[in-house]
Design a binder for these strands. Structure first.
Lengths: 342, 342
DNA sequence: CTGTTAGCGCGTTCAG
DNA sequence: CTGAACGCGCTAACAG
């Protein structure tokens, strides 16, 4: 604490502490690291001095000998941070507060920049890397020549030999339908986003499967276009004009759901009384500000982050990563757009 | 590239390269770092070997002697990442791609955890720290006993001796009014969020000043409550019932603005023809999905991040940080909620 | 119990 | 132009 002034005074070193305490560097080290080969009185003296001069062990030097740094790289292209933030938090949780620190690098979707960041992370000797994408479509692998383990989160790697974690969109699509069926709906349609996204396709597959399983026929084929509110509005207008008896809408995103609800109100339909609407992603700012609030499928991203961290940890400890993509369970968050008076 | 397999093969060291190239470590070092005290042929040989074994300089070892690590800590409590992500990106820009890496730590609003992270960052010998809050209210200083410079971004420090960067909310409030006046509005009201937030108060001050400067009297006092859509709806309903001739609404956030627009549609008012509405924060997902799209005041967070990085850089290079809080200019993003047919 | 010695991987004198 | 030697701060074997 008495380091002195603003950004100057070179941090105290173990040697400083040892000298001031009148012991050797090795003894000081043992005392501070709680080894039991030190006399109580000596330890007390060393600790007192350390406290006094505000000694902070130099993690760099420690890492140099230890062979591991206790750092992890989070390599992302998620410009909004929508996926990377919960994953980061989950990872921090799993690593145990402060044991591990995370380098966050944003490649902005640029492969060159990604290589650059990767290089930097390796130079800094991170113990492992988590790659976070912003779509569930497979992304190019970083390859296997890397000296540290890599886990892919949200976007799986396109190489099946890598270890990837991604939410199970198919199950999510199913869940949405099953919930609406439980709510007594039977004329259910699906409005979703960009058909080039795996997420859109997978959720639609789940939708179709669950409809078939329930013995229901959708009044219309799933409609794909874009992940926007305006598409939600337009699609809803179109569909309800053609099929006025629709009583449930499964949406591919919360934004689409907001648009759908919006359009329904314009057309004088009540949500959820006339029509139940369900979103996807459980994006708080959209879901809880909606009127009524939005039932939505949540990807459990924090859990995904925790798991990614745990997998990486295991790999770092030499326990090896099984190749393949884990599809993680999603969960339904029920609010007022499917169940009245909630 | 030929390091070998998955996460095992200890990374090649400068010594390895030197041995394989048949030169001393010192020569290898010079060759690789582009010093000109090396014969062309020797350099070529060394570089070839380095490439072949996939040599990566150990940044830890470099930092140990260099005295600086080329790392920066980003200490935040912004759970959503709404502020921290653009600031991170701005900082990465300013530092120059890859020269500097950022440790991102989320304290989750917990002072204990913050101390813990701070300690870890200092152990890792970061060259400097940027503290990012999620409100513009002053936050507790980290103190001045730190061995590295600190810059506060978004949330200023409560200690005027620290260096802080925060958006100029007062000017933002003014700008909103001035824009509406330019658009020919004169009966303008202000609906904003939680009155305990400095952001709400400062924007309201700007609102009042600009109204006075324009010689206008607001039909109603600014209304404070919460940063939500539902408050926007309720407040708008209330206000328009009492003052049907209002023709402009300055909102304290985009969420509030969304609610206001929503209510206006319910009441059969057209935006922007009957009433112009302006939001705050320019939160893309809200602003561009609105119908009509939302004119909004943008806090220029990336620029703020860039500047924070630059200030920190200067301080690291010993150029010293002037104490005080810099209020950064904001900018208006004009869309359809104030100007028709845009 | 304590101190001495030897590295960890690299950059940097300073002789050759 | 090249190499031997030292130090960055710390931990881990050994001796004493």
């Amino acid at each position: 604490m008495a380091d002195g002034s603003t950004g100057t005074g070179r941090a105290a070193t173990l040697g400083d502490v040892a000298r001031l305490a009148g012991v050797s560097i090795a003894t000081a080290s043992k005392a501070i690291n709680g080894r039991d080969e030190v006399a109580q009185r000596t330890r007390a003296r060393v600790l007192a001095v350390a406290e006094e001069v505000g000694f902070t062990p130099n993690a760099l030097a420690q890492s140099l000998t230890a062979g591991r740094t206790g750092t992890v790289g989070l390599l992302t292209s998620d410009l909004e941070g929508r996926f990377v933030i919960p994953i980061l938090m989950g990872a921090e949780d799993a690593f145990g507060a402060g044991q591990v620190n995370v380098f966050l690098c944003d490649a902005r979707g640029d492969a060159i920049r990604e290589q650059y960041h990767l290089k930097a992370l390796l130079n800094r000797r991170v113990d492992g890397i988590i790659v976070v994408g912003r779509q569930t479509d497979p992304r190019p692998s970083l390859g296997h020549e890397l000296p540290v383990p890599v886990v892919y989160a949200y976007s799986p790697s396109d190489d099946p030999a890598d270890h990837s974690l991604t939410p199970d969109n198919r199950v999510g699509g199913r869940m949405a339908v099953e919930h609406l069926v439980t709510c007594g709906r039977s004329r259910i349609v699906h409005i979703t986003g960009d058909p080039t996204y795996a997420a859109a396709q997978d959720r639609a597959i789940g939708f179709r499967e669950a409809m078939a399983d329930a013995g229901l026929q959708s009044p219309a084929e799933p409609m794909f276009a874009s992940w926007t509110e305006s598409w939600g509005r337009d699609a809803a207008t179109l569909l309800f004009r053609r099929h006025p008896d629709i009583d449930g809408v499964v949406c591919g995103s919360d934004q689409i759901a907001r648009g759908v609800i919006d359009a329904l109100r314009d057309h004088g339909r009540s949500v959820p009384d006339d029509v139940a609407v369900i979103g996807y992603d459980n994006w708080q700012v959209l879901a809880t500000n909606s009127r009524p609030e939005l039932t939505s499928v949540d990807n459990n991203l924090e859990e995904l982050g925790r798991l990614a961290a745990r997998r990486l940890f295991d790999a770092i400890d030499g326990r090896g990563l099984e190749p393949g993509t884990e599809k993680l369970p999603v969960r339904l968050v029920i609010r007022g757009s499917t169940i009245p008076h909630l």
